[in-house]
Each structure stands twice: as C-alpha cells, then as structure tokens.
Design a binder for these strands. Sequence first.
DNA 1: CGACGCCATCTTGCATACGAAATCACGCTT
DNA 2: AAGCGTGATTTCGTATGCAAGATGGCGTCG
Lengths: 200, 200
Amino acid sequence: MASPRVRDLLEEAILEGDLKPGERLRAEALAQRFGTSRTPIREALLQLEAQGLVDVEPNRGAVVRTFDRDDLRDLYELRALLEPHAAALAATRISDDDVDRLEALCEHEDQIVANEAFHGIILEAAQSPRLLVAMRAATGIPRTFRSVFWHDEAQREESLMCHRRLVAAFRARDPHLAEAVMRMHILGAIAFLEETWPSR
Amino acid sequence: MASPRVRDLLEEAILEGDLKPGERLRAEALAQRFGTSRTPIREALLQLEAQGLVDVEPNRGAVVRTFDRDDLRDLYELRALLEPHAAALAATRISDDDVDRLEALCEHEDQIVANEAFHGIILEAAQSPRLLVAMRAATGIPRTFRSVFWHDEAQREESLMCHRRLVAAFRARDPHLAEAVMRMHILGAIAFLEETWPSR
DNA sequence: CGACGCCATCTTGCATACGAAATCACGCTT
DNA sequence: AAGCGTGATTTCGTATGCAAGATGGCGTCG
C-alpha cells in the first residue's frame, strides 16, 4: 500500500530545507509540485507526521515541524538513549561485510552522507524492528541543523574518531565498548549543541 | 487532518483482538464495517503501520502484525529502554495532581485499564514529544498478549508494588529511584514472559 | 502426478468530485 | 479606531470511479 515515491520526495524536500520549518503544507500545492493528486500527498503527510517531520491538525492541515533548541535537545537525548542500545545489539549481530562497509564510510569524502549511512547500517544491523521504528522519531530533522556539526573542525575529528572506534568495537564483537562509544558520540553532539547554541 | 475517528476504531478492534494477528485487512471490507469509505481506512492503516500494529506492503495490502516470542521480547526490551527514561524525566516534571491520579490508579479495580492509564500519565508527564512518538512503537500490542500478566497473582502483586513505589519516587521527585523502579518493572515483565513462554 | 502459464477476478493506488469546516476580508457597530 | 459579525473563498475530509497490479483457479504440458 502507498507507494513510497511521494513520501520520499516530500521527506527529501523537508530534510533538504526546501520546505522550511513552520511552512504550511497545502495539499493542493504539493500535489501540483510533485505532479500527482492530493490523495498520495495526504498519505505521505500522515506518514511523515508519525516520523515527527510535520505537524498535522485535523481540519487545519499540515505544517513543517519547527525546531527550537529544546526540541533538538529532546531529539538528541532520545538518540542518546536509542543508538547506544542499537550499537550494543549490532555488535553481536553485525556481518563482516557491514563492518567493512562502516570502515569504508570513515574514508568517505562527503561526511554528511557518510554519517547518515553509518548510523543507518548500525541500526539495521541491530535487527530490532521496533527499535528501527522508534528511531524514526529521532531522525527527522532538516540537514541545516545537522550541518552545524560539520563546520567545526574539532567536532569533525571527534566524530571520525568515534566512528573508527566503533568499527574496532564491532570487529571485536564488543557490545559494551560499542555502546559506550556510541553514547559518547551522541552525548558529545549534545554538548557541542549546548556550547554553540547556548540558550536562544 | 485525518479525523482520528476511524483510526481509533481500527486500533481498538486490533487491540481488542477483534481483528486477529495475521488477518488480512481489505480496505473495502473495513470501510463497510465502519460505515465509511476506503479513503479514511487507508489513512488509518498507514498511521497504524507507523505504530507497528499492522504491516503494509505496497500493492499488496495490510495485515495485522503477528507477534511471536521474539517480537514481544524486542518490544519489551525497547520499553525497558524508553520507559525508565520517561520515569526519570517525569520525576522532575510531574504535577502533584498527576501524582494523585497515579496513586488513585493503584486502587483501581480493572488492572488492565489502570495499568495503561498509569504508564500513559507518566509518559505524558515526561514532557518529551519525541519520546512520546518513539513509545508508540512499543505500545501497539493486542491485549490478549498483555492479559497473560494479569492471570498470575504474584505478577499482579509485583506490578502493584512497583506502581506504589513509583508514586513514592514521584512524590520525592527522585529521578534515579523512579528510573530504577521502572526498569525493574519492565525487566520483571520480560523475565516473566521468558518463564511462562520459554521458547515456543 | 507435479509444475508452469494463462485468464478471470479481486484489490489496491491514484484521480477527481462534492460537502463541510476553517480562514480571510470587509463592513458594521460601538 | 478597535472589535465583532457575516459572507466569500480557500482548504480539508470523504466518497467514488477507473486503471494497474496482484491473486487465485484451471487447463495444459512435461
């Protein structure tokens, strides 16, 4: 049911910042934009609502979710809870091929893309369908907000270091190490967030 | 958008076991059953998919999710991760009124309803929108599966004890205690699950 | 006897139409 | 001039039609 086409297009448009936070999403306009009718748009919006990317109110329409500092904190705290667990599960279940893939991603030039893929592989490797669904609530965030991290050299280095350490932990099939590294990785991001964006 | 009416009806039908796991959900049939058309049904199904209650495959329709032992374990492990965190957050944010409400629920006669309400209040009190969404991935489960717990006297007592202890922790505004009690509460449920349903 | 392929049927996915609710603008009242 | 009420317009929610894809049964072939 519901071919994922429109959903993915809409998601990309929001993540890419093409549709900005706070912007009202009129079904008719989106339908024209994507060359379809309102029906698939409505279905996509409902799915994205479950993902936390849009707010939808009955009889009033959809709006791109706005992100203030508290929202981001909330979101990253959830990640700090879920992803270390995912890493621990993945450590005992990940395939050698996937570890190779993770290692390769450490050398990838586009760090934003590499980072998304990196965390995605780990999540898949955890083989917990419920965890996968739950994490969707913590991944929906326009790239503009994430790109902050990649402008800071020290942050990039720390991130890369964590990723390499994670690869090592996976090779050693060490769930505790993987969990600890991932926790540091996410909590580090929160700390950086608090520093760069103190309390606006 | 999307009046919640049909969605809630459908959810209830699944939770109540009226629509059984594995059962195919044909849009037309459901539309007749609820006295509406296929459109709201489709939208409800997509929302319930995000909640993990139904499986939906493009062009092939929806099916009530089946739950085997591994699924339940996966689901409860996720709860064991999320709910203690929710309890810790709630401890510092919950209102006195809500604590009173929790205490009253401990005396409620219908323990299944009381239990759902109890955990719901705590989740709300945590005031973390993302956590709320994530938890939806861990609550979708027909009541038949839960009712197992309420047939065991010892389990009922332990559960009630945990709930009372949680109330005390909230009164004392003690996040660590609340978190620990909640963790025990959920992990206890997992252990009970493993005992009663060893490895079928 | 079993497997493959073809055709009839069913079900879904999308487009479109129509009634209902909300929004907006304008003029009126105070 | 500010606030309120009313009508026009916009936007949503639901129903329904139609085409594409999936399902299932039957006959044929190996």
